[in-house]
């Protein structure tokens, strides 16, 4: 209990004094995970829409694989990305290992299946509802996808937020590919792991509270910006 309270107090002080190190780490967390979310969404949403409206041979297999990959252990992803990016690996020449870019790559791999699976479910249900109408109106494949994406935007937002939550709270993969290097690849979760290892529970807890607060405020501001909870349609 004492640790929780002192953690909370320390978090409060770190925030109100605008602790420069904290801000740097927090902003890096945000930047890495936001970038990963953006890229992952650009891959996952159209993929989900395609899987919903188009019948092709590997469709079922891809859906099953995506669903299975939702529970992918981040450590394994980190390991694979590490091997690919390491100096002797196939992408070694890019020199990306131990950079924020490597962390973004790992997080994209982790959250694409999650976002695509949730999005696909919503899109598929709506497609069943809309199918006859859109077929009747002879809309193009592109218009179909556009319409479905637009009319499921609430569910897609939820999918994206789930992806963001997984990305920002993830530690196993980015620890491996980022290396938790001070002023370069240290983010909130890896810093927490480090401080816990050192036995500085109060600081670790403080970072943890900042992480939670950040996740909540991102979620709230996205909801607020998109106005989803205001209209009260249903």
């Amino acid at each position: 209990m004492v640790d929780l309270w002192s953690g909370l107090a320390q978090a409060f002080w770190l925030v109100v004094t605008l602790n420069s190190e904290l801000i740097e780490i927090a902003l890096r967390s945000l930047r890495v995970s936001m970038t990963a979310l953006l890229i992952a969404s650009l891959i996952a949403m159209p993929l989900a829409a395609l899987l919903a409206v188009k019948r092709f041979r590997w469709r079922r297999v891809i859906i099953a694989v995506l669903n299975a990959l939702m529970g992918l252990p981040p450590v394994v992803v980190g390991l694979v990305v590490y091997v690919l990016l390491s100096r002797s690996g196939p992408l070694g020449v890019l020199g990306l290992l131990f950079t924020p870019t490597a962390m973004v790559i790992a997080q994209v791999v982790i959250i694409v299946p999650l976002i695509a699976s949730i999005a696909h479910q919503a899109l598929r249900d709506l497609w069943q509802e809309y199918h006859d109408l859109l077929i009747s109106m002879n809309v193009s494949q592109w218009q179909k996808i556009h319409t479905l994406l637009w009319d499921t935007r609430r569910a897609l937002l939820t999918a994206a937020l789930a992806g963001f939550g997984r990305a920002i709270g993830e530690v196993g993969a980015i620890m491996i590919v980022g290396g938790n290097i001070d002023h370069a690849t240290r983010v909130l979760t890896t810093a927490i792991a480090l401080e816990t290892g050192k036995g500085d529970f109060a600081l670790a807890l403080a970072l943890g509270f900042v992480l939670i607060a950040m996740a909540i405020s991102v979620s709230l501001s996205i909801h607020w910006l998109s106005g989803t909870e205001r209209e009260g349609r249903w």
Binding site: D132, Q143, D151
Partner: peptide
């Protein structure tokens, strides 16, 4: 085609009626 069970796009009435033209 007007279907036996009307299919409503999850949009406003105005957007629904305009949809085929937009498409």
């Amino acid at each position: 085609f007007v279907f036996q069970r009307p299919i409503m796009l999850r949009r406003s009435v105005r957007q629904n009626i305009a949809y085929p033209l937009r498409a």
